[in-house]
Write a protein that binds this DNA or RNA. Structure first.
Lengths: 98, 98
DNA sequence: AGAATATTTGGCCAAACTGCCAAATAGTCA
DNA sequence: TGACTATTTGGCAGTTTGGCCAAATATTCT
């Protein structure tokens, strides 16, 4: 297998960075249950809706969620449910590092 | 299962954040092969040794690596090899999001 | 002790991040 | 069209990040 390049590390880091924020982890977990509109996610996060919208847009750019407009509302859902594996991974790191 | 708390999200985010940098991913991959001293890792990363030292200290604080002094050198190694699962996870996200 | 080597720490600076508010945009409905 | 709702965008302020250099620290060896 070829050595990992600097570009590959950057791409990997982009994905991890997108998830590396408490609010975005909460959003991902909410979306794991089922698709939600921004206003529902604002309630779940307890932040200004513009802040939530920016977090979602960041997750979309990272390829983690997708959005779909229905009438006035925009529904977000997980594009890559495999991202939920991260939760388990993180918990094992935290368990190991006790 | 109890709902994830804000504190838990913060703790999870700290782990992800520690990994969310190209240089630190490179360091982790190097350490996955075998323990290395800082000077070797500096060569692998191609950065100032003080910069590498700070990245390693950050990884140590996150519980991802441990250090051991041997003579003049300090050897770092993975504390939680399970962290390597992240590479696979990230690659699947990137694969999903094509 | 003094010289040499390996690492860490502190300081600096430019860039990125994250929250809020206000304004702009898009869609619905009377 | 005009009012209303949902979301996004732009801008501001305070904080964090990540690189380098210089200085401090720790260890070894003569």
């Amino acid at each position: 297998m070829a050595r990992t390049t600097q570009e590959q590390y950057k791409a990997q880091a982009r994905v991890l960075k997108a998830l590396a924020h408490p609010t975005r982890l909460l959003l991902v977990e909410e979306l794991a249950r089922h698709p939600r509109c921004v206003c529902d996610l604002r309630d779940a996060a307890g932040l200004d809706i513009s802040t939530v919208s920016k977090h979602l847009s960041l997750l979309r750019n990272a390829g983690i969620v997708v959005d779909e407009k229905r009438g006035l509302k925009v529904f977000y859902s997980l594009k890559t449910p495999c991202v939920l594996n991260f939760f388990k991974c993180v918990e094992s790191v935290r368990a190991c590092s006790k």
